[in-house]
């Protein structure tokens, strides 16, 4: 093994990887709308606030309950600017990585991705223990509670 690494045959591969890394790092970052995002929930939701990691676990379905109660994550539509911004800023993934994640979860454990709706605020209003997200400008007071603000 040590002998293998000593050989210079690996040098071109290493150089190629370094080049790709440098070029890739320099490429423009994925841009999403910069308006603040609120994690919102139905008024029956069993928590009044969440951390970003908790929200991430809920929307990736690695955590399905809060305070012992089942919670129902609801996503914005796949192609919406809201979904793209949320995936990037809350899940720290690209849209492709998120799609890949759910495809993998289906194969690994039969998991199903959360439902998608056009109006997340309205959906959260109507689903007991429902949780979703919206842009700050879309939020309507008294319809849902804000659990977390993501800048």
């Amino acid at each position: 093994m040590v002998r293998l690494f000593k050989r210079l045959e690996f040098l071109p591969i290493v150089l190629l990887l370094v080049t790709v890394f440098v070029v890739g790092s320099a490429s423009p970052a994925y841009s999403a709308q910069s308006e603040a995002i609120y994690i919102i929930a139905n008024n029956s939701f069993p928590a009044k606030s969440l951390t970003l990691l908790q929200a991430k676990r809920i929307f990736l379905k690695t955590q399905t309950r809060v305070g012992g109660k089942a919670v129902i994550p609801v996503n914005a539509r796949k192609d919406s600017s809201l979904r793209k911004a949320f995936v990037q800023r809350a899940l720290h993934m690209s849209a492709t990585e998120e799609q890949r994640y759910w495809q993998d979860q289906k194969m690994k454990a039969g998991a199903q991705l959360p439902p998608e709706v056009g109006d997340t605020v309205r959906a959260v209003f109507g689903i007991k223990n429902g949780i979703s997200y919206c842009f700050a400008s879309q939020y309507k007071a008294d319809v849902a509670q804000i659990l977390l603000k993501i800048e």
Binding site: L17, V20, F21, G24, S25, P28, S94, T96
Partner: peptide, 20 residues
């Protein structure tokens, strides 16, 4: 394994790897 950070070619993901 290392997933190359080339956002320019999204949605293609490229991951080279080595192992023992």
């Amino acid at each position: 394994a290392y997933q190359l950070p080339i956002s320019a070619i999204e949605p293609v993901l490229i991951t080279p790897y080595v192992g023992v």
